[in-house]
């Protein structure tokens, strides 16, 4: 646990302490390697704009458990959920120093989509995602207990007869947009019902209040006994063995939707930090790339039960491209997401 404890203020204090190292009272503080030349000379703080114990937490722990060996320092995670991630980005990461010791572990899917719907108070360009860690496509799923809707064709057919209620985590979510696009393309009527989070969404589908649901695949694929995944918004079915009934929406309906990654987690940093400390930034990016090929990382990911296939390195350029794409698609569906025309 000690690796992850959040003592951001302690470090700030340490920095102050090293500046005033002459003060006698402070000289007894354990200023570990404060005068060492190499980066990093202290722990790296990671701001996670979601709840502790969730998917981002497990994912980040697995990654940093290996990364720390290359960086030769520990990571300290702070979880700042709230306002769909805005508290983490704006209040905490926003105030953190631009010194390459502060990173954010965000999700380029729903979080970026959120910025489109509600303009943030900060300039989006202040942050740069420097490495994508995973990608998890949006999927459509039904309860195994549902007697009528067994596959995506049943859903579309039924949706042409009556409006179907679709449980989604929130409206501004890539998986939700996938369902809307599918409805527009096929003429089926889908009514999105935001249920605040994956757990509530699965509950809504399991208890039959919702006709079907749309979520990131990772949140449903482990519940194969209760749910069938019937469609996936990706270029291909990434887990054909675990999502046997899932069709690729584009292929099946002749659509041209770009992949809708409901989960696209990535490390981010302030651009200012890169400009001020290009050497430190290089150390960060060089070391993190080694993690993806390290067998220890594969082992750590397997332990979290997340599919290894979803782990994917994305360069800063890839990340920027994805952010732009999500921003564009968000703008296209803005009226639907905000309830304003």
């Amino acid at each position: 646990m000690s690796d992850f404890e959040n003592d951001f203020s302690r470090r700030l204090f340490l920095k102050g302490a090293s500046a005033t190292a002459g003060a006698g009272a402070l000289s007894m503080l354990p200023i570990q390697a404060a005068f060492a030349a190499a980066f990093p000379e202290q722990n790296i703080q990671i701001f996670v704009p979601t709840r502790a114990g969730g998917g981002a937490d497990r994912n980040m722990r697995a990654f940093t458990s290996v990364w720390k060996n290359y960086l030769k320092t520990n990571f300290e995670a702070g979880f700042y959920p709230g306002a769909a991630g805005r508290v983490g980005y704006e209040t905490y990461m926003g105030k953190a120093k631009a010194d390459c010791y502060n990173l954010i572990f965000g999700n380029m899917g729903p979080e970026v989509l959120n910025w489109v719907v509600k303009k943030p108070t900060f300039d989006l360009n202040r942050f740069l995602y420097i490495a994508q860690v995973d990608q998890d496509p949006g999927i459509v799923f039904v309860s195994k207990k549902n007697k009528k809707l067994k596959n995506i064709d049943d859903i579309v057919k039924e949706g042409k007869k009556r409006t179907l209620n679709v449980g989604v985590s929130r409206l501004a979510h890539p998986a939700s947009l996938g369902v809307v696009a599918l409805g527009r393309h096929t003429g089926a009527k889908f009514n999105l019902v935001p249920l605040s989070g994956g757990r509530n969404t699965r509950a809504g589908v399991a208890t039959g209040e919702m006709d079907f649901g749309a979520l990131p695949s990772g949140s449903v694929v482990r519940k194969q006994k209760q749910f069938d995944i019937v469609a996936v918004f990706d270029k291909e079915n990434p887990l054909p063995n675990r999502m046997k009934k899932a069709v690729v929406v584009n292929d099946h309906f002749g659509m041209k939707l770009p992949p809708l990654y409901a989960g696209a987690r990535a490390f981010g940093i302030k651009r200012e930090a890169i400009e001020k400390h290009p050497d430190r930034y290089k150390v960060l990016t060089d070391t993190l790339q080694k993690v993806y090929t390290d067998p220890a990382y594969k082992k750590a990911v397997k332990k979290t039960k997340a599919p290894w296939k979803y782990i994917r390195y994305g360069s800063p350029a890839d990340c920027e491209k994805y952010v732009k794409y999500i921003t564009d698609i968000g703008a296209e569906y803005k009226s639907l997401l905000t309830g304003k025309s």
């Binding site: 709230g82 306002a83 769909a84 805005r86 508290v87 704006e90 209040t91 719907v117 509600k118 929130r170 409206l171 501004a172 997401l337 905000t338 309830g339």
Partner: peptide, 12 residues
């Protein structure tokens, strides 16, 4: 629609 209401401007 996640419209903030009566928050006095606090993200929290």
């Amino acid at each position: 629609y996640e419209t903030p209401r009566g928050t006095f401007g606090f993200l929290e």
